[in-house]
Design a protein around this nucleic acid. Sequence first.
DNA 1: TTGTATGCGTTATCAG
DNA 2: CTGATAACGCATACAA
Lengths: 363, 363
Amino acid sequence: MRPPTLRDVAAAASVHIATASRALNPATRSLVSTSTSERVVRAARSLGYRPNPIARSLKTARSDSVGLVIPDLTNPLVPPMVRGAEDVLSPAGYNAWLVNTDDDPARERTQIHSLRSRQVEGLIVATARLDHPLLEALHEEGVPIVLANRQLGTGHIPSVTADNAAGSAMAVRHLVDLGHTRIAHVAGPQDLSTGLLRQRGFLHAVQDHGLPADPDLVVTCSAWTEEAGAHAFGALLDRGVEVSAVVAAHDRLALGCYDALLSRGLSCPDDVSVVGFNDMPLMDKMRPSLTTVRVEHYQVGAEAARLLLDTFREPRRPARAVLLPPTLTVRASTGPARSRRPSGMSRGRIVAPAGVQARSAMP
Amino acid sequence: MRPPTLRDVAAAASVHIATASRALNPATRSLVSTSTSERVVRAARSLGYRPNPIARSLKTARSDSVGLVIPDLTNPLVPPMVRGAEDVLSPAGYNAWLVNTDDDPARERTQIHSLRSRQVEGLIVATARLDHPLLEALHEEGVPIVLANRQLGTGHIPSVTADNAAGSAMAVRHLVDLGHTRIAHVAGPQDLSTGLLRQRGFLHAVQDHGLPADPDLVVTCSAWTEEAGAHAFGALLDRGVEVSAVVAAHDRLALGCYDALLSRGLSCPDDVSVVGFNDMPLMDKMRPSLTTVRVEHYQVGAEAARLLLDTFREPRRPARAVLLPPTLTVRASTGPARSRRPSGMSRGRIVAPAGVQARSAMP
DNA sequence: TTGTATGCGTTATCAG
DNA sequence: CTGATAACGCATACAA
């Protein structure tokens, strides 16, 4: 049995189809007498009428939907962002189309094309790179876009992110308060705003506390994986660099640091304190539970959606970069710096393993 | 600048709009001469023509999209299922609409309504309860549905799930091989097929190994949370039930068991071995890393999508219940049963804390 | 306040 | 093989 259309409702209420349309549409109901409007509504209800959004879209050239461009749904940071966005979009009458790009530019291109052909009215994009011609081009074209979690280098497109520099500073501050002076940074990909700004924030914070910005204390990962973190931090340890604490630019990198320490017989936090970034689910269940800079990804998604809705209302509003304040969640992976023994191999001091020449920091 | 329509393409190729339509549509291209079809395709490409799926849907009464009804995107089991489904649907030309129900029947009802009004051609539902009138009704109506991860009690609707009973049996078998004879079960909600079948599988397996199905060894949780698991297993421990191993119906319940043990000064696996269910992300990073029954949720999603596509081709095909074989991932949370000392308080034997009367198992 | 007429972009059914 | 025409379901400018 074919679902009832407006025509059926109009017939049942013995009014013209146009009248039925007006009566059923809250915005135009005032143009119709209360009595007939009531009659129409009753007829619609009794027939189980549901407006056909396809037909409506064709007519109004609106789809009431936005595209959500994400790297990968199975990345634990993503689902909270998505729900945050949906929880704002939904009450505003918008639906969200999700697409995964797997951080592959080609796939991203086709996915965004597919979204546009489905007539989405705007885009929330969580896959921005610092240099991102595609997004710049779309923005030039006038496609409403809001970036979530990551920004462009140019800042031309509105964005909602955590205040990454502030987050790094909080981590450093915490470690300095615990007495640490040799603090390393396991940085993330430098072509992403998250990686870059967390590193910059780290370097500034270290200097603000009067500590030298020793290049030996910074290692960079090209991916946010445990393996990358373990490899990078392991290399730093193996170089014999003196270090009692590390700020990782991502919880996964921090877990990699755990692995690097474990495989070298070192303990966290006794030998080295570790701070992560993001506070992914289950970070409280690690051993040791991870001290980390908490980012409210739900809020990032929600705020991005609000910005997008704003853009719909005021298309030519200048780009804004909304920074959400992170917080520091202190758990068991950070502890006081060991007071250094005058000489010898204290457990708090990392020395190069046999066969590796210890290299002293530049003066 | 308005995006080009079929009319524009037809004009540019100086053919009738109907001819342009046929030329551009792979299925009807054969009705058009090669030369004109080439001309049309060239015109379309040079104009950057993209068919309007809204208009097409209105005409064809197809949406090329299916609904994916999930409990909550932030549940770590869900994203792999979703991607599995998408990776099958996408090559078949279907897009997936995602909705979260938060396991709230009212919300589920409205979300499914919303999907239907968006003209989805079928539903993949991961929120089934054993008793689920809404789904039965939809199925009666002829809406193509495939259940994923959970089944109905009646089995009237095609489903794809892990073989939950087999999974429980694998867990029990593993523990028996390690010498355990007092094995508990922390069961999940019994109104869900997952909870029920894992419990049943546990009880059968225990009996198959000649162990008594002691009711004291089974506790039930009404939610898949760590708190519920900790509370239930804690209560079992506090009753003084002798137990050296536990099969939890979910990794989260298993983590709750960890908590219950920890807060009672007991150690895993030295005092009690713990087996989880699902192998959620990061379970290898727990301390101890969790031995668990691995369910390939990606495959569950993918297979559910395949079944749905089958249903589109053969609407009246009888319901099938596809069971995917789980595997046991052995990690550090399970170890050999302690050989029991003749008397005294061995660490391997749990005794009731002061103030709690130890209750012996029924004879 | 209600009815009339038209079109959104596409596909399908006719003729020719 | 191609062109003309209608129709999908709805919203709206215009007329009454």
